[in-house]
Simulated assay, not measured.
Amino acid sequence: MNKFRDALYRFMYGRNGVDALNWALVILELAVSILSSIIRVQGVSQALYFVSMVLMFTVLIRIFSRNLARRQAENAKFLTWWTPKANAIRGAKARRADKAHKYVRCSCGAYCRVPKNIGKVELTCPKCGKKRVVKT
Rank of each mutant, 00 (worst) to 15 (best):
A88L: 08
R71W: 04
M1E: 02
L25C: 14
N16G: 08
S36N: 14
S36A: 11
I63D: 02
S107K: 12
L8N: 04
E74I: 09
I27N: 08
Q42N: 15
K93L: 07
K85T: 05
V114M: 04
E29Y: 12
K130Q: 08
Y111H: 13
S36C: 14
W82R: 05
L55H: 11
N87F: 01
A100I: 01
V32E: 02
T58Y: 11
P115H: 06
T83N: 01
D98G: 07
E29F: 11
D98K: 09
K3C: 02
I63A: 00
A47G: 11
Q42F: 12
A110W: 06
F64E: 03
L68W: 08
A86W: 00
K93Q: 10
D6A: 14
G129C: 04
W23C: 15
N87T: 13
N67F: 10
K3Y: 00
C106Y: 05
F64D: 03
A69Q: 15
Q72E: 04
N117T: 09
H101Y: 07
L28D: 03
I61Q: 08
V32G: 03
K135D: 01
R71P: 06
T80L: 00
T136P: 10
D19Q: 09
T124V: 14
R40K: 13
F50W: 09
C106S: 10
L8W: 05
K135M: 03
C112T: 15
A69R: 15
M12R: 12
W82P: 02
L68Q: 07
A24Y: 12
L60K: 05
R105A: 12
L25A: 11
T83F: 00
L123I: 15
Q46L: 12
R132P: 00
Y103F: 12
F57A: 13
N2E: 06
F57Y: 05
V121A: 02
G43Y: 14
I39V: 15
K77L: 08
R5A: 05
V54M: 07
R40I: 14
V134K: 07
V133L: 00
P126N: 08
V121L: 01
C108S: 05
